[in-house]
Nucleic acid binder design. Structure first.
Lengths: 346, 346
DNA sequence: GTATTACATGCAATCGATTGTGTAAAATTT
DNA sequence: AAATTTTACACAATCGATTGCATGTAATAC
């Protein structure tokens, strides 16, 4: 009934008459221990069911081999894939991952940062909450020499690693695609303009319009907070009620884009003929909705892998605290039915 | 440039001339330290930027306040919501969560179990890999007195906590619903019959048919390995090519169900008129696909919350190692368009 | 005014692994 | 055979927080 008491290197030492230090060294194949002794010790360890206590090792080495992850919410396609990429890479390198959700609340993010810092994480991967505009709570990691990797939703200025896509470019390309398909009035669902992710996408949209000699109509631009389907539905309804409704829509995420498609259908507005739509992220729903949603790829798993690698390969002795290392990944326009006004190929 | 060295209770002790033990007690409001001293110590701790080292505390107390999670893959709707529920509950109780994916491979699951056990997790939440039929790698937790909560994909026999839905009932209800809608030949996409989750759903399906006096046609029953859209598509194609194709389909997950709907549409088979479909899980895609997919709810977040609570409330002194505590959650049939043959209400 | 109790704090061991330094014995060199 | 180097291992401190026990002082009781 009682729990098996844990076997430590001291138990082993006593049992087979070697010192704990020899045991410790033998178990990690330290060269100063003879082959014979090493084999003997390992065998005994096996037999006695010895299991290393990683907490003790972590404390002694003051490194936990753990990567902390701070995100808004796990149960979103992009985020869960991002985490998946981080975890896979971390695990293969012998690292654990600790996860904490902010639920997009700044205060949660701050307290989570504290907890993770106190947990002695070896590195931190962060995708900021919607509310975050102050980044002081990440200074503590910097001070402890713990590398911080911001991914996707990143601060404008913070000397650390950043893993992002070129949101401006993606926004430009998405909009350009609609223009190429013949759209004349293109609406935009933007996310919070406090986040550079959404700001950049919007700027790409604006510049694409300008480059095509099209006017920017502020009535066609919505700034959402969460880019939820509710927000998307409501805005679409308004757009369709305009005297001069748009014939194209670039949404900063797929959720709102899908709701726009559904709303259009409900209003007997044909997609893409009367309203061409392109989203962002390539969520699973994008290929399921009818008509299927054109969108921008968001390489979540790969971004996770790269983020993890940044931490794993981080050189603690590098003195360049004053440099930001930014990795920018490519995105692609995926053309599906929701925007295919004239092009039939592809 | 150099990292700020961490402030420990010894630094504090030296600075303000108290012993480390007093510091330690004061910081956690131990009653044997006077109010005045406590206040003074806390103030000093604040000023010197003291941060507790949770590793040290964990080692000393041999409890890490960490919940380990073992799942197949994070980036699936059910799993990510499950994790979300666990994390939220754990965090509010001051616990961290460590995640590891098995990618549905048994060997990964075994090695992950070892890692988490060595990490001294306070408890473990597990949803088994597809391949798992041997559960010996969970014994080590039992031996250490670490509570294990199996959720959703659980072992048939293992004395521990289990958090599940009534899959038999759900399978029965889903099938019964199709029968009520007038289906005469109902196909079934089953998952691996090595997993009781899918076995139970299938048994519910079989019994519903029998109770309705309908014959079971093995040609209409597919056993899938991953229940992927590829498998679903292929099987649907076969089913529709039968001389006597089914007029109803109960799929053990939404992914395959959606692929069936899309395949049917491609073949000009009307859903639900010619083929009524019901899925399982209520993934986001279920309400997006056209026609919208009827399905069975799978209370992922709630299951996560309960799983976490089982661990948080676990009494280590309880001697009932020989009892399994099973929590069974209710599911509901969500009727959408894909199965609404005659009922128009609701 | 002495005895008893309560209160506030310090001492030192502990959790388990790691590692710099020291040392005896064995191996090698000359 | 003496000198030198190498090999193989042990000692003891360390990481930082925790806690049972001891101790000294102040407060209360008789």
């Amino acid at each position: 009934m009682s729990h098996k008491k844990k076997v430590t290197i001291y138990d082993l030492a006593e049992k087979i008459n070697y010192s704990p230090s020899t045991i410790s060294r033998a178990l990690k194949d330290h060269k100063s221990i003879s082959k014979k002794t090493t084999k003997l010790i390992k065998k005994a360890a096996q037999e006695m069911g010895y299991r290393p206590n990683s907490l003790a090792a972590s404390l002694r080495n003051s490194k936990s081999n753990t990567i902390g992850i701070m995100i808004s919410r796990i149960n979103r396609p992009f985020i869960s894939s991002l985490i998946s990429g981080i975890e896979e890479t971390a695990r293969l390198a012998g690292y654990n991952v600790i996860i904490s959700q902010s639920n997009d609340l700044f205060d949660n993010e701050v307290s989570n940062a504290k907890v993770l810092c106190d947990s002695q994480v070896s590195g931190l991967v962060v995708s900021l909450s919607m509310e975050t505009t102050n980044y002081d709570h990440f200074r503590q990691f910097e001070e402890m020499g713990v590398p911080v990797v911001f991914v996707d939703r990143v601060p404008d200025q913070f000397n650390s690693y950043r893993v992002v896509i070129d949101n401006y470019r993606a926004g430009y390309d998405a909009t350009k695609h609609l223009i190429d398909e013949g759209c004349k009035r293109i609406a935009h669902f933007a996310g919070s303009q406090k986040m550079n992710v959404y700001r950049d996408r919007k700027n790409g949209y604006l510049d694409a319009l300008r480059d095509a000699g099209m006017e920017v109509d502020e009535k066609l631009i919505y700034e959402f907070y969460t880019l939820s389907s509710e927000e998307g539905e409501k805005a679409t309804q308004e757009l369709l009620s305009l005297p001069d409704p748009p014939d194209g829509l670039f949404s900063s995420n797929d959720t709102a884009a899908v709701s726009a498609i559904l709303c259009a259908k409900k209003n007997n507005v044909k997609v893409p003929e009367e309203l061409a739509v392109i989203g962002f992220n390539d969520d699973p729903v994008a290929s399921i909705v009818d008509p299927s949603l054109s969108t921008i790829t968001h390489p979540a798993i790969k971004m996770g892998e790269i983020s993890a690698k940044r931490i794993l390969e981080h050189d603690p002795d590098s003195l360049d605290k004053d440099v930001a290392e930014i990795t920018i990944l490519n995105t692609d326009v995926i053309i599906r039915d929701s925007s295919r006004k004239k092009s039939k190929q592809n």
